[in-house]
Each structure stands twice: as C-alpha cells, then as structure tokens.
Design a protein around this nucleic acid. Structure first.
Length: 810
RNA sequence: GGGAACAUAGCUCAGUUGGGAGAGCUCUCGCCUUACAAGCGAGCGGUCACAGGUUCGAGCCCUGUUGUUCCCACCA
C-alpha cells in the first residue's frame, strides 16, 4: 500500500470508472422512491470558484447520502448562458482580437456567442467532474438548449395570453454601459461620495432672484417638469403656484406642493424630473405633469430642452452645466455628501432611472400563492431566518421588467420584437424545463416535483422566489419542498473573496495540491448553515492530515489483520474495549444520521473526525494491539473501519471508494447501505467502565518519570491495556495509602505530597459545591428529582474518595 | 428610514428542551513508542460583549446598551 494516499492517481482512476460506468445515471424505477436535486447551473462566464465548490459539495453529499439510503437519487447538472455577463465577456474577447462588436452583423456576433457556449460548457463540466460529483451526465442541461427554449416560449405565451405579460412605457432602471434595461433585483445599492449642488431657478431669466434647489445631478435640470416644496413649509408657502425658469434655458416650470419633499433636506426645495427619477415619476403622475426624456440609451443628452449640451455624455454635461452655472452666478454652493446610488449588478456602473418602453411580468397575482405556500408550511426554507426575507420581498413586489436590449439570450417570442428575455426568465423554469416540461415526459412525471434546492442566500430574489411562483403557475406544484440556503464563502478574515482584493482561493488549486476530498472536507467541516463560512488553506492542510490518518489506520489493519478476515463477528468474544468502541460508534451513527437528515454536514463532519481520530485511532487501535482476543478485535476494527467509510463517503467520496473497493473487492461503495444505529450493539455498562479505565490511564500518563504503580481495583483483565497505553508497569495489591483515587481504583505511585494535596483540595471543593447545592431547600424542592439524585450520588462518591485518600494520609 | 443575524480560549468555531464551559489550530513541555512527525503524550489558556430581569439554577429565555456584518428602501 502507498505510504500516503496518492489522491491524484486515485481520483483520476475513480473518476474514469464513475464516468465510464454511468453508474450515477438514473433509471426510472417506479418501485424506488426518487430523490432529486436539480443543480443551480453555474454561469459559463468563468471558472468554478470556491463558492461553487461549496455549493456543489453540499449537493453531492446530500445525493450520495440519499442514494445510500436506498433512494433513486438524481443530481441533474447544468450550466447557464448568463446572457448579459457572457455578452460582456465575448465583447472583451473580441476586442482583444481587434474586433469591435459594432463591426459585426448580428449573425456574426451570435456565431462567437455560440462558440463560447460550446467551449465553456465543456470547461465547466470538466471542472464539475473534478469535484467528484455523482451527477447524471446524460441529463446535463444548458439554459439555451432546445428544451429550455420550448419551455420559455410556452411560458411566455401562457402568461401573455392571460395578460400577465404586457408591454408598456414605465420607469425602469437602465444601465448605460450594458445598454439594457434591468430589473429591480439587478440594481445594487451602495454609498458613494457625491457633490451636492445648490442651484438657483430664477423668476426672471438670468436674474439672481429665484428659488434654490439641492441636487447631485445638475444635468437633469433640463428634464424638470416642476419645482416642489412641502405643503406645510411656512417658508415657501407664498411660492406655490409661481413659475420659475430652468437655468440656462427659456423654459418655465411651475412650483408645486407635495409631501414627498423633506423640509429638512438641503434647501427644502426639490426639482421634479419625471423621466429620470422613480420618485419624481410618481409625483408627476399625481400632478398631471409632462415627462421630458433628456438622454438616450447610451447616456447621451438629447432633445430640444438640452440646448448646447446636446450630444454630451452625462458626466461631461454635468461638468459643463456646473461651469456655466458658475458663470451665471446661479450655482449657490456645493458640498460633499454620502448618498445612496443604484449600481448595475454586472458592471457596477451607476444605473439611470429612465422612462422606457419595455416588457413586464405582472407580479401581484403570481406572488399570492408563493406567499401562501410558505405560510402553510408546504415550502420550507432552511435556515428559517430567510422566511421573513422571502415574505417581505413578495409582499412588496413590483412588476418584473423582463426585456433586455442584448443580442444573445432567449428572444421574446413575438414576431418583430428584437429584445431578448432576462436571463433569470429561463432560470425560473429550471426545475421543470430540465425534466422535459412542457412535454409530458417520463422524467417530468417521475422526478417532479424535486426534493431540495441548494443555493447561496444571495439569489433568493433573483432565482429562488421566481422558481417558486413559476412552478406553481405553470406546473401547479411547488418545484421543490425544501430550499437549503447556505452562506457565502469568505476569506480567513471574513472578507468576501474577490479578484480585485487578491484574497481568492481557486478550488482547482486546492484540488491539485491536496486532493478533492481534502477540498470537500475542508469546505464543509465546522460550518453552520446560518453563517458565512471562512476558508483558508490551513483548513485544507488539516483535512489532508485527516485523510492521511485514515489511510494509516487502514495500513495498520493490512499489516496486522488482513489474514484474519472474518465477516461474522462473535459478540460473545468481545472484550471491554471492543464493546466500548461499538457503543461509541453506534452513537456516532445515530448522531450523524440525524445531522445529515437536517443537512447539517458541518457539525457531523466534526463529529466524524473526532470519533475516528480520538476514539478509534488513539484508543481503540492501541487496544487492538494488546487485545486478549486479537482475532475478534481485528474483526471489530474492520467492521467499524468500513462502516465509517460509508459514513464519510458523502463528504469524501474518493478516499472512501479507494479503500472500500480495494479491501472488499467490490466495484463501488456508492450503493452500499448507509449504516444504521443498532441498540443491541451498544454496551452502556462496559462503556462506562472503559471510560473509567481511560481516566486511570490518563492519570498515570500525567505522572512524569514514573515507571511503576500499584493498583487496588478490579482491573486484572485490563492490565495489558493499562500497561501499554499508560507506558507503565503495574502490579495489583492492597493500597491503604493511595496517591490517587478514582471510581475504580486506588493507586500508589510514590509521588510527592504536593500532588496528592492538590487532589485532596480539588475533592474538597467538589464536596463543598455539592453540599451547597443540596443544602439549598429551593433546589431540592424545585429541581427535577433526577438532577437532585445525581448531585447526591456525586457527593457521596466524592466523600468516599476523599476518605480513601485521607485515610491513608494519616 | 425598515428589517435580520452575530458577539464563547490568541485564531476558527461547537454548545441539542435552562442543570458543573468544549473541540481543532496556535503556544509550552516531553517523545522518531513497529499505522501515521501530515505523528504520539502531557499541559497553559475563558467575567460566554455590557447592564438589568425571569428562575432553586442562565452561554442558552426576556428587556435595554454597545460593537460587527448583511439585506431591503424613490432622501433629492
């Protein structure tokens, strides 16, 4: 056997076996219950990052666990065309080759897009394979394949015919860099420092008498339809109804009163720019004001109102307007201010609110059943804390702007319409479009609705909610019954991993250096779903060390026990250590199953590691070496070792497959029955006694330089274990003058008096504590009787031990 | 402005319905003990953020305070 686990060799061999045998491709079998996870399709715009690795590991762990529990488990893989993001990438790539998108026809550009699809879909798939995912590759789906297109068109027409998709001129968010409309969910908010300008709107053209407004966007004054003050603002009461000039123009606009104005902000006077502000749009509607669009899709100023500034970009126009206002004396001040800005989630540039003709999905009717599904408990979010987020968003939902002015993506299926659909439109159908819907396919009938959706919490709005209402609307069923929302992987300091910060860790680098199992285990161990996990290479090192520990335990078995192979374990032959490890192991099985069922893999991984390292290797393996009945102990060792392989297999598929298959001469561990708790294999009495033996050994080990001891206690059968693990010679005999006392032995080892006094004072304080508690009448009267009884026992036991120690010290 | 989460050892985190504060890493000391130095053994280390309350009993439940993080929102 190799000195260490050669993960590179083993992973390559095992992956080849898995892929060639198609063993994870699922056959529809009505006698078996399906368990289905549809994988969130990664965007084909980049390599898989650490967040994908985390997300995919969780999914695969669930699927492997369920498969071993006997479910017909399907993990359906896929990739997303990510229209807007991919298009940016392709344009960049073409530019590197010296080609401008504008020089290409639409068809030519689409050729490049399709080539990208092809190359990067394969690339993503290769990376997924490296992660050891037990996917059904025969069902691999892409969001631009014909099945998805059919689903998209069907859904579009269905909603259109019901009047739930409509076209109209509305205020939307427009990214002038990506040159497309965005949905509300695609706008992020951040705080930026901006200049706040005070600008005077004069009563008489070019004169220094007027009203002064405050704005961070001086260039939009040309789009103003009115000036507004608060109706209750005494300072400006007499202004209402008067007319002012827009500075630098001949345009006159009225002063109106509206409660939207914050009296305390700036000068307390607000410009109303209906075509370029969400809030102002509503005000204009209310007051019957006109809309004036003053810049186009590229962010260039246009129209009669902008005068000499026509043709300028927004930033240029801003500068020019300010310069001119200064000359005219209409700039009445400026200061720096932190304000909240909408940004495009893709390119991070400032989003312009704009009046635009777009396609929308009417949301209020679709939202209602999605709200009801959560409230009724039919849909479960794990962890629960996201339920409020989900409900708040749906309760305040606005119509969804679904049209995009991009070249690639799903076309809006209406003749003559050039726009494409939001990439999330097709994503919303993913749980059923991947299974053949709208066809009445066998897959759809067997696997739908799916079981659990696993994804990070940051796409609840983009994706999760939209799948929920789409599933209900189009299939009449929830697309999944549980949504598992995990955190975002951060660096060791809790910061978001990003290219610009340079703190990112490439999962493929970790795989190359430490192996896939180490990556998977290190991503999962010690994490809780509620929190964002922190990741650093230290964790991969620790995981690698754990794998090495497992490997070496197997080497031990092969060196000492291979020839003594037996499948039948005779429990009558069990020694105390055998019974101890069987008990401990069964408790771990029980606990791990419970945690896996709750998808709490992080704590389960911790438990598995600590059991294997501390209990199985540190204690049991050493006991096997000196076992009275070596054959039985080796059989127990083998049993626990292999059952343990099954327990960790969902998290670390490769090393467990390698060990299990090689030693058992079987093809795979993947379809082995998952271990179950067996009460008849637990021995509480022997476990307690061995725990006491452990205490004696630890006590002896702590005595530096002591080579022998006299024990007074019923420990004859444990002599070999105590001598071996305690590295000490022991004799049995009466000990009237012990140096140490434990529940099962009085110990004499010639130590100095100070050590003994330490133990005495410790016991005394324990006794004091017990006396204090039991002396409290309220405690005795109100605490549960078993708690009181426990304290009484402890007190009696401690008194006895103290008497033994002091009895000898006289 | 509205909402959510978090605060436990130097670091990363556990702590199940309230019943004597735990693990791993780090650090110190001793070990190449025949599976493993990617290892073994023994230690050091905590006012469970702060202040109240409920309770016989609070890391856990309630209220407030402080700090950190995140989400939502049309403050120009």
């Amino acid at each position: 056997m190799e000195k260490n686990f050669d993960f590179a060799r083993a992973e390559a061999e095992i992956n080849k076996k898995w892929l060639e045998s198609d063993m994870f491709n699922v056959k529809i079998d009505k006698s078996k219950k399906p368990f289905t996870i549809i994988m969130p399709p990664p965007n084909i715009t980049s390599r898989l990052h650490i967040g994908h690795a985390f997300d995919l590991t969780i999914q695969d762990a669930i699927i492997r666990f369920k498969r071993m529990q006997g479910f017909n488990a399907l993990l359906l893989p896929g990739a997303d065309h990510a229209a807007i993001a991919t298009e940016v990438k392709v344009v960049e790539e073409l530019r590197r080759q010296g080609i401008e998108k504008s020089s290409l026809t639409k068809a030519e550009f689409m050729k490049h897009i399709h080539k990208w699809y092809e190359i990067y879909t394969a690339e993503i798939r290769g990376q997924m394979e490296k992660l050891g995912l037990s996917c059904d590759w025969s069902r691999f789906s892409f969001t631009m394949d014909t099945g998805t297109t059919k689903a998209v068109n069907t859904v579009f027409h269905s909603l259109y015919n019901k009047g739930l998709i409509y076209q109209g001129e509305r205020m939307i968010n427009y990214c002038t860099t990506c040159q497309t409309a965005l949905s509300d969910a695609e706008v992020e908010h951040s705080t930026r420092g901006q200049q706040l300008y005070n600008i005077m709107f004069p009563f008489v053209r070019d004169e220094q008498n007027g009203v002064t407004i405050a704005t961070v966007r001086p260039e939009v004054i040309f789009g103003d339809a009115a000036i507004a003050v608060h109706p209750g603002d005494k300072r400006y009461k007499n202004l209402i109804g008067k007319m002012v000039y827009i500075p630098l123009t001949d345009i006159k606009i009225p002063i109106i009163a509206d409660e939207i104005v914050d009296k305390k902000f700036g000068t307390g006077i607000l410009q109303i720019t209906p075509a370029h502000s969400h809030a102002d749009f509503d005000v204009a509607k209310k007051h019957g004001l006109d809309y004036y669009k003053i810049f186009d899709a590229k962010g260039t100023l246009i129209g009669d109102r902008v005068g000499e500034f026509g043709g300028m970009t927004i930033p240029n126009a801003r500068e020019a307007v300010i310069t001119k206002l200064k000359v005219q004396g209409l700039l009445k001040g400026q200061k720096n201010r932190q304000s909240n800005i909408g940004e495009c989630y893709r390119c991070k540039n400032i989003v312009e609110p704009a009046l635009s003709n777009q396609w929308f999905m009417a949301m209020s009717d679709l939202a209602k059943p999605a709200i009801a599904a959560l409230k009724s408990g039919e849909l479960k979010l794990v962890p629960k804390k996201f339920e409020k987020v989900y409900l708040h968003w749906l309760n305040n939902i606005k119509d969804w702007c679904i049209s995009r002015q991009l070249t690639s993506g799903h076309k809006i299926p209406i003749d003559g319409v050039e726009d494409v659909l939001d990439t999330w439109f097709s994503s919303a159908l993913w749980p059923f479009s991947t299974l053949g819907w709208p066809n009445d396919s066998a897959d759809y009938k067997y696997f739908y609705p799916t079981d659990v959706l696993v994804t990070a919490y940051d796409i609840i709005f983009f994706w999760v909610i939209r799948m929920v209402f789409s599933g209900i609307e189009h299939t009449g069923k929830l697309p999944f019954n549980t949504v598992l929302l995990h955190g975002l992987v951060r660096d060791k300091d809790g910061k978001k991993m990003s290219k610009s910060l340079g703190n990112g860790i490439d999962p493929l680098d970790v795989i190359n250096e430490f192996g896939t199992d180490a990556l998977r285990f290190s991503l999962i161990v010690g994490t809780k779903l509620e929190r964002d996990p922190r990741y650093s290479l230290d964790k991969a090192v620790l995981a690698r060390n754990f794998i090495n520990k497992i490997w070496n335990a197997v080497k031990f078995y092969l060196a000492f026990g291979q020839d003594k192979e037996t499948n039948e374990i005779d429990w009558c032959e069990f020694g105390i250590a055998d019974k101890w490890i069987m008990t401990k192991f069964n408790n771990v099985v029980k606990s791990v199953i419970k945690k896996y069922e709750k998808y709490d893999f992080g704590v389960a991984a911790n438990e598995l590691q600590s059991f294997f390292w501390n209990d199985f290797c540190d204690w049991y393996l050493e006991c096997v070496k000196v076992s009275e009945n070596k054959q039985t102990s080796l059989a127990v060792f083998r049993y626990v070792l292999f059952a343990f392989m099954k327990l960790v297999h969902p998290i670390m598929p490769f090393v467990t497959e390698e060990i299990f298959c090689n030693l058992n001469k079987v093809t795979t561990i993947s379809f082995e029955k998952f271990p179950e708790f067996s009460k008849s294999s637990t021995y509480p009495k022997e476990k307690r006694k061995f725990d006491d033996v452990v205490e004696v050994i630890q006590l002896l080990r702590a005595q530096k330089g002591v080579q022998s001891a006299i024990l007074d206690g019923d420990l004859v059968r444990e002599k070999a274990i105590i001598e071996k693990l305690g590295a000490i010679k022991i004799e049995f005999g009466m000990v009237d003058d012990p140096d140490f006392v434990t529940k099962i032995a009085k110990i004499r080892i010639n130590i100095d008096e100070a050590e003994k006094q330490k133990q005495i004072s410790k016991l005394k304080s324990e006794i004091e504590r017990g006396e204090r508690m039991l002396g409290n009448v309220n405690f005795v009267a109100k605490a549960p009787s078993e708690v009181v009884a426990e304290e009484q026992e402890k007190l009696a036991s401690n008194r006895k031990l103290l008497a033994q120690l002091q009895g000898g010290a006289k």
